[in-house]
Amino acid sequence: MATLAPRPHALLALGRPRPRTLRTRAAAPRARGPTVPPQVARPRRVFLGLGAAFVDQLARMDSGSAPSRSFVAAARPRQGVSPVEQILKNVEWPDEFPFKAEDFSRFDESSDNLFYSAPRYVTHIDDQAIGALTKYYSEVLPPSNTPGVAILDMCSSWVSHYPPGYKQEKIVGMGMNEDELKRNPVLTEYVVQDLNVNPKLPFEDNTFDVITNVVSVDYLTKPIDVFKEMRRILKPTGLAIMSFSNRCFWTKAISIWTSTGDADHAWIVGAYFHYAGDFDPPEAVDISPNPGRTDPMYVVQSRKRTA
C-alpha cells in the first residue's frame, strides 16, 4: 500500500530532489477497479508549489490568527539543515483543524478493496531509502526479543523493513491484501482492514509499544480518526513512527498530499498528531540517504503522553 509513481505536479522551491524513475523488483499489476474520469473527478485544492510556508499561513488564516513571524523565512533552510526537519520546530498550531473535507478527496474514489485486491510483491522505494529506514528502526525500536513488547505495523504488506532477524512476541500487521500479509516473515499475526472505511482499530486500549506506518499515511482519508485510535491503543509513552518518501499512487493519495511537497507533508502529518490530542509535539526527521541521487526518506513521529 505504499508508493509507486512520482507526483505529477511541479517541484516546490524548498530544495526537493527531482523525482526519479522508480526501480522495482517486479512490475506492479494495474488496478482492477475503474478510475474516475477527469470530468467527474472531485475538485482539488492546488497550492501552486508555494510549499511549507504557505501551509503554515493557510492554517493561520483558517484559525483567524495573524502571523507573528515570517514563515517564508522560517521555511528557508539553514545551511546544511533539511527544511523537513525545520518545519515542525516552534509550530503555533491554529485552534481548529485547518483542512477541509475536499482535502481528503482522491482522484480515484473507487473501492480501495478493488485497487489492492492483487498482491504487489514490490518495493516502492529504492534500496538506499529502504536501508536508511531499516537503520533508523534499528536505532528507535525496542531491542529484538524484548519481553512484553508489542508492535503494530499499520498499512503493512509483504515486508516491514525492520532490521534483519528482528523479532518480538507480538508484531501485528494491518493491511489491505491478505496474500501480502501472509508472506511477511516478521509478523506474528495480521488483520485485513480498510482504514478508509473503518478507522476503528480492533485492539484493546494500551496494547502496543510502537506503531509503524511506511509510505502509506498519504492514503488515509480519515486521518484524525485513525490517529485518535492509534493514541488509544498505544501504551503510555508509546511511539508512533510515520515514514514517507516522495512516491505515491497519486490517484489514491489524498488531494492535500498530491498538491504539496515534502516539507508540507511533514507539517500535515504533524498536524494529525497535534489534533488527535494527547501526543507529544511531533518531530520530523530527514533520513534521506543520498539527497538528490536516491529516493528521499522522512519520518514524523510522536509519543503518547502519559497523562
Rank of each mutant, 00 (worst) to 15 (best):
T260K: 11
N113S: 10
L12H: 13
R20T: 07
S117W: 04
M174G: 02
P43A: 03
L220I: 04
Y166F: 13
M242K: 07
E85L: 06
G51I: 04
P119K: 10
D278C: 14
D194Q: 08
V140L: 05
A5P: 00
Q193N: 13
N145S: 14
A266I: 00
G64Q: 08
F244T: 01
E92C: 14
I87S: 14
N198K: 15
F115I: 03
K100G: 07
P282R: 10
D103N: 14
T212S: 15
L4N: 12
T212K: 15
F203E: 01
V72K: 01
D108V: 04
F104T: 01
V55F: 14
P6T: 05
K222P: 03
I87K: 08
D126A: 03
L195E: 06
F99S: 10
R303S: 13
N184V: 02
A101R: 14
P236I: 14
D264R: 07
T207L: 02
T294P: 03
N177I: 07
A118Q: 08
N290P: 00
Q57F: 12
T24Y: 04
F104K: 03
R106A: 15
I268Y: 03
P282H: 10
A263R: 02
F107T: 09
L195R: 07
I241Q: 01
K170E: 07
G165W: 10
E283W: 07
N206V: 12
L239P: 05
A59I: 00
I241M: 02
P163W: 11
A271K: 01
V122I: 15
P291A: 05
S144V: 00
A27V: 11
K100D: 09
F208V: 14
V192E: 07
R78K: 13
K135R: 11
Q193Y: 10
G165R: 12
D209F: 01
S117R: 07
F208T: 10
M154S: 15
Y219R: 05
L187H: 04
F273N: 08
V172W: 04
R16M: 08
V81C: 13
R7D: 11
